[in-house]
Design a protein around this nucleic acid. Structure first.
Lengths: 349, 349
DNA sequence: AACACTAGCGAAAACGATTTCGTGTTGAAA
DNA sequence: TTTCAACACGAAATCGTTTTCGCTAGTGTT
């Protein structure tokens, strides 16, 4: 078990000083060609690699970025991570990932831990609980310490920092508009409670689409799911005897549950009703019928977030703004859950 | 933008020495009650937190573990990460995640980068390409440097280290046995090429189950998928006019593709054939029909891996073995794709 | 011969923390 | 009055680098 080689050991071995070794390896002109070659050869032979920790301490930067996400099991977040990783690695950065599990306390602890030297900056999507509590002291604190922070997806408007979001309102609007174009007349919305910002925004998009088409929103066509765990039953209950012909759901799972619920009532999708979801995950692609969804381009979001953060990090002396907000456009991916040729009404003609 | 507080600043502010501050904060008996209180109060007031990097350098340990996985988009890996995270955090460790994207080169680079001080040890599932090349120098190297390594899922037998695997052979055997119990007579296997170790092992389980029931394996009932991207067509082609009544697939996607292919031929699952997959992901739960699968307990595997690694790290002076291999049992989760009451033959009686 | 320069290298400080080993001041025992 | 332990604190080494500054010899200039 050979221990890692250090400058000091090389110096002792070759009978020169530590500084000489360091300079030689960094091609300083101060060192003669001879000794430089000798030292480099030795270092290469024994596979010397400088110690990152020592470098971090010296340079006061770690070349790693901290990512804090609410949960990793959501396919969307994994695609974002993918994008972050890619962009970060291309620029010589590492990525530390922590999960808050949607808990405020864990989010705070993780940030504090990472803020003490482990990372140069943060990419964050806030926990649900944080959105509820509206306690952002941990966020303002890292910003005050001069650590750049980029928020994505679930962002906090009151916090002044770089942001990467999707156009939730427009994405939802596009989806609902599509349902309207398909001649749906009673369109249900399955969304989350309002303190989840994306739920709120997508609800807004739904309402705007209705309004633009001079349709009146009906409260009994809107379900705001409180608890994810019991959402399947809640949705089934909600859709019972509603006689709707279109559903817009703010995520994949709600959409799938809606389809299942409709099937239990003897209604087929897309024959009797169209369904559109949000987030283009594996489920949407493989489910039968495959789901038309609003795709969020997670990898793109991740890459943009990383790009923003690195830009701030490399710009000399974190100059405190101006902050950017990048809006990543959504895309409506059409699949079988809105396939017109299947729809019964059409066949009647 | 207040900079982070250091011991030195506290010392200057309170007109004592750095060592006094350090000792006071660590409750050393050397320091008088008076000054100790004073220093602690000051530190608390200004929210002093020691710099992790400096501690890492001093202690020669980072309290972080490096995780290298082939791809994050597979639901299985995200559950493993979840398990690692949980266990690591409970023990005061951080987690750095890197993806090899199944590339040998990226795996090597990532390991070398992290090995230079960034992490104390590794948890790894090797890239496909590494399994092909059989070049393990980067693995032996970190082990030689005294860094503990735990491999999970895709492990390399020749490398001597702690391992966490599932019982692939038995898992597959259980699944196939179930199909046999359901009176299937022509059972197809959809697997991967043999150099993917899990594919090989699950194939073995399939064969053993057949043998134990005195059924003869038929080459034309076995498909070894080479390229994931074209697997859907390959599977459809393979199943054309095969007249099988059972399918065992080594992952979720192959199982789903099989069901789709059968449906295109006018065969219904489970009415005309049973299908069992491997890996209990979101897809299996939500697909219609929902999939019977061999569940791998990813979080459990991750937790075990982290536990093994931390154990090695905390045991004084990495005593070079003995190495453990933990086998996490699989579990057959029954869903509709093997629901007997749906099967036509039964209804005939 | 006196001086200025430069090439080539080493000493030491710095990053932020911990820890070992002094050291000066008490107060009490002899 | 002397001696000594206990107490409370500081100096310095250490972890592994980088970088500034200084030093020494050799060379060239007048």
């Amino acid at each position: 078990m050979k221990k890692k080689l250090t400058l000091k050991q090389i110096a002792r071995e070759l009978d020169v000083s530590v500084s000489t070794v360091s300079k030689a390896l960094r091609d300083s002109a101060e060192i003669s060609e001879d000794t430089r070659q000798k030292i480099k050869a030795f270092a290469k032979l024994y596979n010397y690699k400088p110690n990152n920790i020592a470098l971090s301490l010296k340079n006061r930067k770690t070349k790693t970025i901290g990512v804090i996400i609410p949960e990793i099991i959501h396919h969307f977040f994994t695609t974002v991570i993918s994008g972050i990783e890619q962009e970060a690695n291309e620029n010589g950065y590492h990525v530390i990932i922590c999960m808050s599990n949607n808990s405020f306390d864990k989010e705070v602890i993780n940030m504090e831990l990472l803020a003490n030297g482990s990372t140069d900056g943060f990419i964050l999507s806030v926990a649900k609980e944080t959105q509820q509590k509206q306690d952002y002291h941990h966020l303002t604190e890292v910003i005050n310490q001069g650590m750049p922070l980029v928020m994505f997806d679930r962002v906090i408007d009151e916090i002044n920092c770089d942001k990467v979001v999707i156009d939730d309102v427009n994405g939802a609007k596009k989806a609902v508009q599509r349902l309207i174009d398909l001649e749906c007349e009673k369109i249900a919305l399955i969304t989350t409670v309002d303190y989840v910002s994306v739920g709120k925004l997508r609800t807004q998009g739904y309402l705007e689409a209705l309004e633009e088409n001079e349709l009146l929103p009906q409260d009994d066509l809107i379900l705001k799911v409180e608890d994810f765990d019991s959402s399947e039953e809640e949705i089934a209950e909600f859709l019972r005897n509603k006689d709707i012909d279109g559903v817009f759901a703010v995520n994949e799972h709600f959409a799938v549950y809606a389809i299942k619920a409709l099937q239990q009532q003897g209604l087929k999708v897309p024959d009797d009703a169209y369904v559109i979801g949000f987030t283009n995950g594996e489920l949407s692609k493989q489910f039968i019928p495959s789901l038309t969804t609003v795709s969020q381009h997670g990898a793109e979001m991740g890459a943009q977030a990383a790009r923003l953060l690195i830009k701030k990090l490399e710009s000399e002396e974190a100059e405190e703004g101006p902050y950017e907000t990048i809006i990543v456009e959504t895309e409506l991916v059409e699949r079988n859950s809105t396939k017109r040729e299947f729809k019964k009404e059409i066949l009647k003609f």
